[in-house]
């Protein structure tokens, strides 16, 4: 029987132009890594066809220990307050080998 450890999975969907800012926040808040996917779709900002850089969305997934979650959410809220459109949701996940999630990217 494998041992699963509880962690938080943060998923962010937003415009690709915010990539640098998101990565900066993820690094600053001590995440051990992140995954980025290009995405298309539609929502409050209209069609995001994925054809041009400006109308391509990105899907960011970050797994991090629960105690580091509030800091990252603060940064994401600050971006929202400036008018950027972000869809953010947090899930409880179980991970194998939790040690790798404890080691910050910039640690």
């Amino acid at each position: 029987m494998h041992r699963l450890y509880p962690e938080k999975l943060v998923t962010v969907i937003t415009s690709e132009v915010l990539e640098d800012r998101l990565v900066k926040a993820v690094r600053k808040r001590g995440a051990s890594g992140y995954t980025l996917l290009r995405a298309c779709g539609a929502g409050s900002e209209g069609l995001q066809s994925g054809m041009l850089w400006v109308d391509t969305n990105l899907l960011l997934k970050v797994i991090l220990p629960p105690e580091r979650l509030p800091g990252l959410l603060d940064d994401l809220e600050a971006l929202s307050a400036k008018g950027h459109h972000l869809t953010v949701f947090v899930s409880d996940v179980g991970v194998l080998g939790h040690e790798k999630f404890e080691q910050p990217l910039d640690g």
Binding site: S15, E45, G46, L47, V54, D55, K82, G83, H84, H85
Partner: peptide, 8 residues
């Protein structure tokens, strides 16, 4: 620079 504006 103007995130308040609607891209659509």
């Amino acid at each position: 620079a103007v995130p308040e504006a609607n891209p659509s």
